[in-house]
């Protein structure tokens, strides 16, 4: 018997006494909350991420100024990031794909996101335009993410309902961190050590 058939047979034998039922899973938890931009920012600050709120009309200027202020001149920008955001900066693209050392060599990466969750201070990337493949927001040491205010949902259930499970998803809640030493949270291990979020309103 193949391993597959044997395991399935063991499972069926083990659960046989219990009659298969259509018992409904109770879902009495909150499926939405009122958390908004202020809560989102509070959470990001808690994770030691930087944030800015910028009016949509001033976004181009704001992004450029932010990158310049942070010393990020060689900027990796996936397809879908408007050129206007990077005027006077060196824009690197991922076509053809950059190898990891090349990704490591940029000053920073800029992306948009698919969604953000206020309650948990989370941004979610799904690899579509403006975000690129997963490695782009991982290897560079500085990640600037532009979030439109209307992309922020209150809670985890609201976010899950809007996501496409079959896309590669990355949930990011603050910069890379660890609690492995004495359960003390310290920032900065393998992922970007600096995370900055611009909320475009």
């Amino acid at each position: 018997m193949s391993a597959r058939d044997e395991i399935l047979a063991r499972v069926r034998e083990a659960i046989a006494p219990a009659s298969p039922s259509d018992r409904q899973v109770p879902r009495d938890y909150r499926t939405r909350t009122e958390d908004g931009i202020d809560r989102f920012i509070e959470r990001l600050h808690h994770y030691q991420a930087r944030t800015q709120r910028i009016a949509a009309g001033r976004l181009e200027k704001g992004v450029r100024a932010t990158l310049a202020d942070r010393g990020v001149h060689r900027v990796l920008a996936p397809d879908g990031i408007p050129d206007g955001w990077l005027k006077n900066l060196e824009r690197l693209t991922d076509t053809p794909p950059l190898d990891p050392p090349a990704l490591d060599g940029v000053d920073g990466v800029i992306t948009t996101c698919a969604l953000a969750i206020a309650q948990t201070g989370t941004i979610i990337l799904d690899g579509s335009a403006g975000m690129g493949r997963r490695a782009l927001s991982l290897v560079p040491d500085y990640h600037l993410c532009v979030v439109r205010a209307d992309q922020i949902v209150g809670s985890v259930p609201e976010a899950i309902a809007k996501l496409d499970a079959t896309r590669p998803l990355t949930f990011i809640s603050g910069p890379s961190a660890t609690v492995d030493i004495e359960m003390v949270r310290v920032g900065g291990v393998h992922g970007p050590r600096r995370l900055e979020v611009i909320i475009a309103e």
């Binding site: 959470r43 994770y47 969750i117 309650q119 948990t120 201070g121 989370t122 997963r134 985890v156 499970a165 590669p168 998803l169 990355t170 949930f171 990011i172 809640s173 603050g174 910069p175 890379s176 961190a177 992922g191």
Partner: peptide, 8 residues
Amino acid sequence: RMNPYNSV
């Protein structure tokens, strides 16, 4: 509230 990274 959320760990830094979840990959799906």
